[in-house]
Simulated assay, not measured.
Amino acid sequence: MLHKKILKSVIFITLLNLNYSLNAQSNNFNKFSIGFTAGTTGLGGELATNISTKFNLRLVVSGFNYSDNGQEVDNSVTVGYEVDGKVNSIALLVDYFLFNNKFRLIGGIVRNQFEINGNAAAITPYVFDANRTFSPDRVGSVSAVVNYPNEYMPYLGLGYGNALSKGNALKLNLSLGLLYSGSPELIMQGTGLISPTINQVASLQQGLNEFGWYPMLNVGISYQLLKNQKK
């Protein structure tokens, strides 16, 4: 699978660079920073340490939850709906610094749990004509789940800012990249008269197949705990 090939390539390149860096440098893991991040994977925090003068290692944890509910009137039937979404992300990333240790290439592995659950059900009877009325149970309900089949995803990106560089202990950090997530999967279930709605799964899934990459944009503030003027 393409996902596995990309994942193996990222791991191999990252380990190769780390091995070279560790062999070439003796002044490693002597600086640390903590930080706050906000972006497309939610709000979170990060820990960073130096591997060498050109490489930093970062652990980033982030996430968010979303909920919504309400009612809509359709063909004289009141339909109640609920939507819940969540993203939980744990990333192990390596920064390779360019141009005076400010701009960086980023690679790593992300455990990204993304899921959206939704359901809709009739809460009032449906009056078809003067002689036929269908109860809410007879009208039925529809539920749907969207998630990603791949839990571990390779990440590549670009960034600006070095949490462990000399100067002010407080730093602004920016990054933009892509996770190779694979296409999200849609699962639908239905009951009652509206259950044929789930027959649209194939066409809806075809549209979701175009979203094989998950964008990651992050803005962060970091604070260097142990400062060292050599970098």
Score class of each variant (00 low, 15 high):
Met1Asn: 14
His3Ile: 14
Lys4Tyr: 09
Lys4Ser: 13
Lys5Arg: 13
Ile6Cys: 11
Thr14Ser: 14
Leu15His: 04
Tyr20Glu: 12
Leu22Pro: 08
Asn23Trp: 06
Asn23Gly: 12
Asn28Tyr: 10
Phe29Asn: 05
Ile34Arg: 00
Ile34Ser: 07
Thr37Asp: 15
Ala38Thr: 08
Thr40Ile: 15
Gly44His: 00
Gly44Leu: 01
Leu47Ser: 02
Leu47Val: 15
Ile51Leu: 07
Ser52Ile: 04
Thr53Glu: 10
Phe55Cys: 00
Asn56His: 12
Arg58Tyr: 12
Arg58Gly: 11
Leu59Ile: 12
Val60Met: 04
Val61Gly: 15
Phe64Gly: 02
Tyr66Gln: 09
Tyr66Cys: 02
Asp68Ser: 15
Asp68Met: 06
Glu72Lys: 15
Val73Asp: 09
Asp74Phe: 11
Asn75Thr: 05
Thr78Pro: 04
Val79Asp: 02
Tyr81Met: 03
Glu82Gln: 09
Glu82Leu: 00
Asp84Gly: 13
Val87Ser: 11
Ser89His: 08
Ala91Pro: 06
Tyr96Glu: 11
Tyr96Cys: 00
Tyr96Met: 02
Phe97His: 02
Leu98Ile: 07
Phe99Leu: 11
Lys102Cys: 03
Ile106Trp: 01
Ile109Asn: 08
Asn112Glu: 09
Gln113Thr: 09
Phe114Leu: 08
Glu115Asn: 03
Ile116Cys: 03
Gly118His: 14
Ala121Tyr: 10
Thr124Asp: 03
Thr124Phe: 06
Val127Met: 01
Asp129Met: 10
Ala130Pro: 05
Ala130Asp: 08
Arg132Gly: 03
Phe134Val: 01
Ser135Thr: 09
Pro136Ile: 02
Gly140Pro: 06
Ser141Gln: 06
Ser141Ile: 00
Ser143Trp: 06
Ala144Asn: 07
Tyr148Asp: 10
Pro149Leu: 07
Pro149Arg: 00
Pro149Cys: 03
Pro149Val: 02
Glu151Lys: 10
Glu151Gly: 08
Pro154Trp: 00
Pro154His: 13
Gly159Lys: 07
Gly159Trp: 07
Gly159Asp: 13
Gly159Glu: 06
Ala163Val: 00
Ala163Pro: 02
Ala163His: 01
Gly167Pro: 13
Asn168His: 12
Lys171Phe: 00
Leu174Trp: 15
Leu174Lys: 10
Gly177Asp: 05
Ser181Gln: 06
Gly182Lys: 14
Pro184His: 15
Leu186Pro: 04
Ile187Lys: 13
Met188Asp: 02
Gln189Thr: 14
Gln189His: 13
Gly190Ser: 08
Gly190Asp: 03
Thr191Met: 09
Ile194Glu: 08
Ser195Met: 07
Thr197Ile: 11
Ile198Asn: 06
Asn199Leu: 08
Ser203Ala: 13
Ser203Pro: 01
Leu204His: 02
Leu204Arg: 04
Leu208Val: 14
Asn209Thr: 14
Phe211Cys: 13
Gly212Asp: 11
Gly212Pro: 01
Trp213His: 05
Tyr214Glu: 05
Tyr214His: 13
Pro215Asn: 10
Leu217Thr: 15
Ile221Cys: 15
Ile221Tyr: 10
Ser222His: 01
Tyr223Asn: 10
Gln224His: 09
Asn228Ser: 13
Lys231Ser: 03
